[in-house]
Computed example of a mutant assay.
Amino acid sequence: MTIDCFSKIAFIPNDIWVAITIKVASHSIRDLCSLRMTCKAARNAGDTDIVRRSVSIPPPHATPWWWCINPESKRFFDRCMVAGHPELLFREALRELFIRRNENVGLQMLNSATSTGHAAAKYALSMTLLLRTDDNVGKQKGLELYRQLDAAGSLADCNVRCFSILIILWSGEVQMPHIQEQHTVCASPTCFTRGHMPLLYDYRRRAAERNSVHAFGGAAHIPCIQCRADYDLQAFVNLP
């Protein structure tokens, strides 16, 4: 006697497969690879751009070293990059900006990652625009992005995120821009904290070297958001 095995898997619509695959991909790359090996429908769904943009990319310190040299892994990440994966765009944008010194390419990548809601990319874009002394329109856009992050309470996390990416991936190669002495975001003649942020940053940095409690707090208590942006600029260019 024979038993006929019948599976309804072939009748699941493709959009359902894509939705399932996105869920799996956003949890783990390994789970995505396992799912793609189950059947043709799962493999086809895994090859769509929307899935590649959704893949969960582990932080640099948790990424297996051999992924960087394995040809299949490199091809996979290249395809995710082409599809517009926000985390990969963010990391490559930092490389373009502060290692290769390709500002236009880096800004384009940061804009693409920011448009997806990537907070750390928005922070890096804000800082990069605020550093451009010859572009008032760009500075205003950078300040608006900074205000949005401040309202969301994301500034501290974004600063740490940029720091960790730059340090872990490209330690010793990063070339951060310099802030000119006369460069300040805050332009109000009545602001009592204007111009003092470099001194406050230097004080916090020296306190951190002494393991003092005065190293904590940053400029969060400063009521002027533009002065807080000036403080973050100091922290940003001194990330490495």
Rank of each mutant, 00 (worst) to 15 (best):
D134F: 07
F76K: 07
L239K: 08
L233F: 04
D202H: 03
L169R: 14
A208L: 07
H85Y: 04
L130E: 05
H183G: 02
S115E: 11
P58R: 14
S34K: 13
S54A: 11
M109N: 06
T116Y: 14
G138K: 01
W170R: 07
K122Y: 03
Q140P: 01
S126Y: 00
I50D: 10
I9G: 11
C186H: 02
E181G: 08
S56V: 03
Q148P: 00
G153I: 00
V185H: 00
P189I: 08
W65D: 13
L200Y: 08
A113V: 06
R36C: 12
G117I: 14
W66L: 15
R100Y: 07
R228I: 00
V18G: 11
K40Y: 12
H214F: 14
V105Y: 01
D135H: 10
G84V: 04
R161I: 08
A124R: 06
A42C: 15
F163L: 05
A235L: 04
V82S: 11
D15V: 13
F76W: 11
D157L: 08
F163H: 03
D232A: 08
T21H: 11
Q108W: 06
L89Q: 13
Y231K: 03
M127Y: 13
A187N: 09
A151C: 08
P58V: 10
Q148H: 03
S171R: 13
S26R: 02
Q182W: 15
A235D: 00
E173V: 05
F236V: 02
T63P: 05
H183D: 03
L107V: 15
L89N: 04
C162K: 03
G172R: 00
V174P: 08
A45V: 01
D135T: 07
W67P: 05
A156P: 01
D230E: 04
D15C: 12
Y146M: 09
V51C: 09
Q148A: 06
H85I: 06
G217A: 06
V160A: 10
L35H: 05
C68Y: 15
E87I: 10
G84A: 04
H27K: 05
G153Q: 01
H85T: 07
A235E: 04
N111K: 14
K8H: 10
G84S: 04
C80W: 04
C162P: 02
P189D: 06
E173Q: 12
T190K: 12
H183E: 03
L155Q: 07
R100T: 03
A220Y: 01
A10Q: 06
N111T: 10
R206P: 00
C227A: 07
G153S: 02
S188M: 12
L32N: 04
A113P: 13
R52S: 11
Q108A: 09
T184M: 13
L131G: 10
M127C: 12
C80Y: 08
T63F: 05
C191H: 08
K8Y: 14
Y146D: 08
K40V: 12
T38N: 04
A208C: 06
Q140C: 06
S26Y: 00
T116L: 07
M37L: 15
D150T: 06
W170F: 11
L88P: 05
F11Y: 10
A113G: 06
L129S: 10
L129R: 14
E103K: 12
Y201W: 14
A62F: 11
G217I: 07
A187R: 14
L97V: 07
I29F: 15
M197C: 02
S115W: 05
A152K: 09
